[in-house]
C-alpha cells in the first residue's frame, strides 16, 4: 500500500499531479492532500506516508518551512520529499536539498519527468 501526500495551495495542481502519476503507471494506493505546510504537518502525524510532494510558495507555511520542520521532528521513518515548484534556480534547488528535500521537479513538468523522478520512490506498473 503506497500513500502519497500532495502539498499545494492549488487544488487544480493537486489534481493534475494525481492524474499524471496515475497515467505514468506509478503505483499509488492513496493520495492525501494538504493546502499548505501547516496542514501537511497534521497529515504527516496522522498517516504512514511513502512519499511527500511539496510546492514551495504557499500561504501560512511555505514548502521549505515545512521540509525544515519535518526534518527537525526526527521521525523514525524519513519520508522522502520531492519539491514540485515553479522555483527553478540553482540556489533554490540547493536550499531545498540542504533543508532535507530529496528531489526536485520544476513546473511545468512533463509526464516523463514526473515518472523518472518519482519512479525512484514509487513502484511502476
Amino acid at each position: 500500500m503506497s500513500k502519497v501526500l500532495l502539498i499545494d495551495d492549488s487544488a487544480v495542481m493537486r489534481k493534475i499531479i494525481q492524474r499524471n502519476i496515475k497515467e505514468s503507471g506509478l503505483i499509488v494506493n492513496e493520495f492525501i492532500e494538504a493546502g499548505d505546510g501547516a496542514q501537511a504537518l497534521e497529515k504527516v502525524s496522522a498517516n504512514e506516508l511513502d512519499l511527500i510532494l511539496c510546492d514551495w510558495n504557499m500561504p501560512n507555511m511555505s514548502g521549505i518551512e515545512f521540509v525544515k520542520t519535518l526534518r527537525s521532528l526526527n521521525l523514525p521513518q524519513k519520508v522522502p520529499v520531492v519539491m514540485v515548484t515553479t522555483e527553478g534556480s540553482d540556489s533554490k534547488k540547493l536550499e531545498a536539498k540542504n533543508s532535507g528535500a530529496n528531489d526536485y521537479i520544476t513546473k511545468p513538468f512533463t509526464a516523463e519527468q514526473l515518472r523518472d523522478t518519482l519512479g525512484k520512490y514509487l513502484m511502476i506498473n
Partner: peptide, 24 residues
C-alpha cells in the same frame, strides 16, 4: 467557478515562475 480561477491562477503562476527562472 473556483476551479476555473484556481486553474487560471496556476497557469499564470507557471508563466511568471518560468519567466523568473529564465531571465534572472
Amino acid at each position: 467557478h473556483q476551479d476555473t480561477k484556481d486553474a487560471i491562477g496556476e497557469v499564470t503562476n507557471m508563466i511568471a515562475g518560468s519567466l523568473k527562472n529564465k531571465v534572472c
